[in-house]
């Protein structure tokens, strides 16, 4: 179905996401991400507690305007099925049974959105809500396989886009840097000097499972994709010193 690759070079993309200067940069990055995955579209859209909206993505402007003009927000099953929730959704699992939903779907397909979609809802602070969506034209089995294989990375990318976009919100006080607890620093330091998980867990007198969760928390706070990337980031930021 034309997916370019299953494991795109997300690490360099994340680095550039980190150094993005504003919302315009996010637009450029989301286009690149779309090209990396070889899907038809990727969209990031947020609404904050005050009802302000922001989005970036690859849909045609014509469709975006039409969506607003027709008031599709009120009938779009993706919005109904994701708002205030937190699990990722394959569009095919949503309820498209109403006449208006079906008409909307036909219109969306006619505008090149594709017949497949996968949306990841994100609940941010103070009632902020965002949706990170991929859409594509293809068959059910390929789409299910693609979203399942890439789910972890897609969830992480969705959250990185959101935390970056949140920082650009006007009037928002900068987030206190996500600092690691002493225990997380110890765990990351041991991994950085080449201990394997078993050795690191043993040194810290914790189980390997516990170590995994501490490392996973540190990975999230460091905005990294995997453990190796997290160790590199912790070193480059001086969070850990070896």
């Amino acid at each position: 179905m034309g997916f370019l690759r299953n494991a795109p070079r997300l690490d360099t993309l994340i680095e550039r996401l980190e150094s993005a200067d504003g919302l315009d940069d996010l637009q450029g990055l989301i286009e690149e991400l779309r090209d990396e995955y070889g899907v038809d579209h990727i969209i990031y859209h947020w609404v904050n507690g005050a009802g302000e909206q922001y989005g970036c993505g690859t849909y045609d402007l014509e469709w975006v305007n039409r969506y607003i003009e027709k008031g599709y927000l009120r009938i779009d099953p993706v919005i109904q099925g994701c708002y205030q929730r937190f699990h990722p959704v394959n569009w095919k699992r949503l309820d498209w049974s109403s006449k208006s939903a079906r008409a909307f779907l036909e219109d969306a397909i006619a505008h090149g959105i594709g017949n497949q979609g996968y949306s990841i809802p994100i609940r941010g602070p103070n009632g902020q809500f965002a949706l990170f969506t991929l859409s594509h034209n293809g068959n059910d089995d390929d789409w299910e396989q693609f979203t399942t294989e890439n789910r972890r990375d897609l969830i992480l990318m969705a959250h990185y886009f959101n935390s970056r976009a949140l920082e650009f919100e006007p009037g928002r006080a900068p987030d206190p840097a996500q600092s690691l607890s002493p225990r997380e620093v110890e765990a990351m330091t041991l991994l950085a000097i080449g201990y394997n998980r078993a050795q690191a867990a043993d040194t810290l007198s914790i189980s390997e499972h516990t170590l995994r969760v501490y490392v996973e928390s540190a990975r999230h706070k460091l905005g990294a994709l995997n453990t190796t990337h997290a160790v590199a980031r912790a070193l480059s930021r001086g969070v850990i010193v070896i």
């Binding site: 969830i155 607890s181 969760v213 996973e216 928390s217 999230h220």
Partner: peptide, 11 residues
Amino acid sequence: TDGVRIESPLI
């Protein structure tokens, strides 16, 4: 939890 805030979209 040893003072660790357990935080991740995967947990």
